[in-house]
């Protein structure tokens, strides 16, 4: 047991696109996905290879969304469920040591235009670190006030222009 070793996490996001391949009598479609890659190491840099990985989704904190094992370099990759934005918690543990990390994840609605009968299902695809206006639309009251004044002044200015004194 490596008692004083402290785990550290490195977080990567990948956007994998499998390219279409054309062959006789076959069709291959591609699906764009965003994956989250977590890398766990001890504090001396040693990868946490073959460690248990447990993922919890934002809408069920109690039941693991998926479980798996890290690879030789301590990496564990998963693709968050489309439509579930929020904090995805990933727990990595091995030999009596472990840690948990919260990964913020937001949804951006995209439609992939592909000439394929299978793809292009108008499904929302998860993209990490890109804000969706429908999800993250919380302006401060100062911003709202400035916007309101600007809009009002636009109307007033236009009205005053038309009712200006004729010389």
């Amino acid at each position: 047991m490596k008692c004083s070793r402290v785990l550290s996490f490195l977080l990567f996001t990948t956007c994998g696109i499998s390219q279409p391949v054309f062959a006789h009598g076959a069709k291959i479609d591609y699906q764009q996905t965003s994956a989250i890659v977590v890398r766990a190491t001890f504090d001396d840099g040693t990868p946490m290879a073959n460690a248990q990985a447990i993922v919890y989704s934002p809408n069920d904190l109690d039941t693991p969304w998926t479980k798996g094992v890290t690879d030789e370099s301590g990496k564990f990759t998963f693709v968050p469920e489309s439509g579930l934005s929020g904090n995805w918690d990933v727990k990595i543990r091995k030999s009596g040591h472990g840690k948990i990390i919260s990964i913020p994840f937001e949804i951006q609605k995209q439609v992939v235009e592909v000439n394929s009968p299978i793809a292009n299902k108008d499904q929302s695809l998860p993209v990490v670190s890109e804000s969706d206006p429908t999800v993250n639309s919380a302006y401060s009251w100062q911003q709202k006030m400035i916007m309101s004044v600007s809009i009002t002044w636009g109307f007033l200015g236009t009205a005053l222009f038309f009712f200006r004194k004729q010389t």
Binding site: S148, V149, W153, L156
Partner: peptide, 14 residues
Amino acid sequence: KILCAFLFLVVGCN
């Protein structure tokens, strides 16, 4: 005056 009243209204709503 209209602008001032509007400002108060916005602050009040918040």
